[in-house]
Nucleic acid binder design. Structure first.
Length: 594
RNA sequence: GGGGACGUGGCGCAAUUGGUUAGCGCACCGGACUGUCGAUCCGGUGGUCGCGGGUUCGAAUCCCGUCGUCCCCGCCA
C-alpha cells in the first residue's frame, strides 16, 4: 500500500464500501464525543469524515491533536446510516473507520481558524499566507488562475500565436512608470531594470519576422498599489501581430476573452463584436474612459439650454467656458429628501460646487432650480434626457474635464447606491480614438497623452496638417464592467513619423535616437506594420472570480507598501554584497533634504 | 507625497462616550458524553487596550506624537 494515500479526500463513494484505504491530509475540524471522535480530513481535493473509536491506540493522540495537523489514516470505507448521511459533502455517504494513524506533522495553534468565515487581519493573512491559502475560497481562486492561464495559452496557440520569452534583466526605459533597478556587479555604476512590459522586445520580435507573438508576461512597475493594482509585479497576456489592422487585433482579443470568460464564469458575456466608444464620447456619456456599462445611465450635455436661462449660476459659468452635464435617472422621485441631500454632499466632497436636480413628479416638475427655468427649457431637458414621470435629472456645472469627471463619479455612485448594476453580466467595450497629444495641465505644453509608440491616425499627413490636439491615435482600451482590462495600439513603425511625433511633443531627433535607439535602429532595417495589446491577467482572474481585491487572486502578494510580510521583502543586504555591487547606502537625512 | 478608516488575549468584535475587577463569540486547556458534521453541556487559562508622551483624583475612551494595516488621491508611457 502507498505510504501516504490510496485515494484523495474527495474520491470515496458508497461503491468503495468495505475497501481498506489510506488517506492523508490536514485535520480540518474535530467533533469529540468522548466515546467516538469524528475528524474532517481535508486535502486539496476535498473532505472525508474519519471515525476514530476509543479502542484505538491513537485515539488519545488524535483527540488532543491541534487543528491543521497533518495525518495519514488507514481504515475501512463504511457506508453511513441513512440518518447520518451528509448531503453537503460529495463523500457524505461514506466515512472511513480508522485502524491505523501516523501523525505526519503536528501543528501548533493556527493563527487563522480555517473553518470559520470570520475574516482576519490582512497582515496576519499575508504573514501566514501558506495557511490562508488552504481556505477554500482563496485556494479556489489560485486554482482558477492556473486554469485560466492554461486556457489562455491553449486559445492563443490554437489561434496561430507562439509564446516567446523576453528578458527579465533589461535596461531602464525613459518614459512611463518608475523602474525597478538591479545593480550590475560587472559594470561599475550601471544598472539593469526589470521590464515594465516587454513592449520593445515584442515589437523587435515583429521586426525579426515572428509575425504572431504572445506571452504570459511578468511586468514590473514601481508604483503605488490600489485594490485592483498589485504593487511591484503583475502579469499580462501580451500580444503583438504583424500586418494587422485594428479590427483584426480586436477580433483576436474578443475571441480569447469571450472564450475565457464563458469557460470560467456563469455570467453572461457580451456577444462580439463589442461596441466601440470613441474616447470623447466616453468622456461625455460616462465621464470616464473606463465606463461600467452595467449602469443604465447616460450623461448628456445641456450647456446650451442653460446658457440663456434664468439660472445665473449656470448661465454665467457657461459663458465663461464651463459646461453643464446632466445625469438622468429613472424612477427615483420617491427617494427621501435625505437621499438627495447626501448626493449633493457627495458631489461637493469630490470637488463639485454643487449638484442641481429636477424631479418629474406627475404633472409637476420640482427641485431647487425649477423656478429659474422656463417651460421651454424644462421641456427641452426632458426631451434630451428621455424623461418620463418619476425620473430625476442631476446637473453638474464646471470646466469640461472636471464636469465630466464629477458627473462620471456621480453616475458610478448612483449605480452602486441604487443597486441598479446587473451583477450577472460582463459588459465589454472598446474605447477607441484616443487623442495622440494633450495639453499638460501645469506647463500648458503639448505632450503625448498615451503611448509615444502609437501610430497617429492619418500618419505623417495628420501630424503635418492637423492641430496636434485634434490628431487621434490608433490606440485602444478594453474595458469590462468599469475595469480597464487592457491597453493597446497599432505601433508607429516609421522612423520619420516617430521623429515628427516627438518633435510635436517637444523632443528633438537626438532625444529619440538616444532613448529609443534599439527600436529606431531596428525600424531602419525593414519593419512590418504591427500592433498589439496586453490584457491584464490578474484583473481578468479578479473579474471572473468576483474578487474585490487583486491580492485574492495572487498566491503570494505584497501588501500595499510593496512588502512581502511572509518573506520579509524587501530586506537589507550584507555590506559585502553592497561592496561587490559598488553601492553605498545614503543616510536617510540626505534623502530628506534633497 | 497627501486625505480617510482602523489598531483591545491566537482570531473576530464589544465596553452605556472619562468611572469599580476590560466583556462576548471562536480557537486553546480540563471535565462529561458512542453518531456528529459550525457537535453539545460544564469549568478554566490567556489582555501593561499598537507604541511613547501629556491632561485628569481617575484614560481603552480626551489631546499630541509615532508605528502598522487597509481604502482613496497623486502616480501607473
Amino acid at each position: 500500500m502507498h505510504p501516504y494515500r490510496t485515494h484523495k479526500c474527495d474520491e470515496l463513494r458508497k461503491s468503495d464500501a468495505g475497501a481498506t484505504v489510506r488517506l492523508s491530509g490536514w485535520i480540518f475540524r474535530k467533533r469529540d464525543h468522548g466515546g467516538i471522535l469524528f475528524i474532517d480530513l481535508r486535502d486539496h481535493y476535498g473532505i472525508t469524515q474519519v471515525v476514530v473509536h476509543p479502542s484505538r491506540s491513537f485515539f488519545e493522540a488524535l483527540t488532543h491533536a491541534k487543528l491543521e495537523t497533518v495525518v495519514t489514516v488507514t481504515g475501512v470505507v463504511t457506508p453511513r446510516e441513512e440518518s447520518t448521511v451528509n448531503p453537503d459533502l460529495p463523500t457524505g455517504e461514506i466515512e472511513m473507520v480508522a485502524d491505523e494513524c501516523v501523525l505526519e506533522s503536528p501543528a501548533e495553534q493556527s493563527p487563522i481558524y480555517l473553518p470559520g468565515d470570520d475574516d482576519c487581519a490582512e497582515e496576519v493573512r499575508l504573514k501566514y499566507r501558506y495557511i490562508d491559502l488552504r481556505r477554500e475560497s482563496l485556494h479556489n481562486n489560485i486554482l482558477l488562475r492556473s486554469k485560466i492561464i492554461a486556457h489562455l495559452r491553449q486559445v492563443m496557440t490554437a489561434a496561430g500565436f507562439n509564446e516567446y520569452q523576453t528578458p527579465i534583466l533589461t535596461c531602464s526605459s525613459p518614459e512611463g512608470a518608475r523602474d525597478y533597478l538591479v545593480p550590475s556587479r560587472v559594470h561599475h555604476g550601471k544598472f539593469y531594470a526589470l521590464p515594465q512590459a516587454p513592449q520593445l522586445f515584442k515589437q523587435l520580435l515583429m521586426v525579426a519576422g515572428f509575425d504572431r507573438y504572445f506571452q504570459i508576461a511578468p511586468c514590473f512597475r514601481d508604483e503605488d498599489a490600489r485594490a485592483d493594482r498589485s504593487p511591484g509585479e503583475f502579469y499580462q497576456l501580451d500580444i503583438e501581430m504583424s500586418y494587422a489592422t485594428q479590427d483584426e487585433i480586436f477580433a483576436v482579443v474578443e475571441r480569447v476573452l469571450v472564450d475565457t470568460f464563458k469557460t470560467f464564469s456563469e455570467k453572461t458575456v457580451d456577444e462580439t463584436p463589442w461596441i466601440r466608444i470613441p474616447y470623447q464620447e466616453a468622456m461625455l456619456k460616462y465621464g470616464t474612459d473606463k465606463p461600467d456599462l452595467r449602469i443604465p445611465i447616460e450623461i448628456f450635455d445641456c450647456s446650451a439650454t442653460f446658457a440663456n436661462s434664468g439660472f445665473n449660476a449656470f448661465a454665467g459659468a457657461v459663458k465663461a467656458g464651463s459646461v453643464v452635464r446632466a445625469i438622468p435617472v429613472k424612477g427615483i422621485k420617491d427617494k427621501p429628501r435625505s437621499f438627495f441631500d447626501r448626493l449633493v454632499a457627495y458631489a461637493q466632497s469630490i470637488g463639485s460646487k454643487g449638484l442641481a436636480y429636477l424631479v418629474w413628479d406627475g404633472d409637476e416638475i420640482r427641485g431647487p432650480i425649477k423656478k429659474f427655468l422656463s417651460d421651454d427649457e424644462l421641456t427641452a431637458l426632458a426631451a434630451a434626457g428621455g424623461v418620463t414621470d418619476g425620473d430625476v435629472i442631476f446637473f453638474v456645472c464646471d470646466k469640461p474635464t472636471k464636469a465630466a469627471g464629477i458627473a462620471g463619479d456621480i453616475r458610478s455612485k448612483l449605480g452602486r447606491d441604487l443597486a441598479i448594476i446587473d451583477e450577472k453580466v460582463f459588459r465589454f467595450c472598446w474605447i477607441v480614438d484616443f487623442p495622440m497629444f494633450e495639453l499638460d495641465e501645469e506647463s500648458g505644453a503639448v505632450v503625448f497623452s498615451h503611448n509615444p509608440f502609437s501610430m497617429p491616425q492619418g500618419g505623417m499627413d495628420a501630424l503635418l496638417n492637423q492641430e496636434p490636439l485634434d490628431v487621434l491615435a490608433w490606440q485602444y482600451d478594453v474595458v469590462c464592467n468599469g475595469v480597464e482590462l487592457s491597453s493597446g495600439a497599432i505601433r508607429n513603425h516609421r522612423p520619420e513619423i516617430m521623429y515628427k511625433a516627438f518633435e510635436i511633443a517637444g523632443y528633438g531627433p537626438e532625444v529619440v535616437e538616444e532613448k529609443f535607439s534599439s527600436l529606431l535602429n531596428a525600424f531602419k532595417y525593414g519593419a512590418p506594420p504591427h500592433g498589439g495589446i496586453a490584457p491584464g491577467v490578474d484583473r481578468m482572474v479578479m473579474l471572473i472570480a468576483g474578487a474585490e481585491n487583486i491580492r485574492e487572486v495572487i498566491a503570494f502578494p505584497m501588501n500595499q507598501r510593496a512588502q512581502d510580510l511572509m518573506m520579509d521583502a524587501p530586506s537589507e543586504v550584507s555590506e559585502r554584497q553592497l561592496r561587490e555591487l559598488h553601492i553605498k547606502i545614503r543616510g536617510k537625512e540626505v534623502n530628506q533634504t534633497e
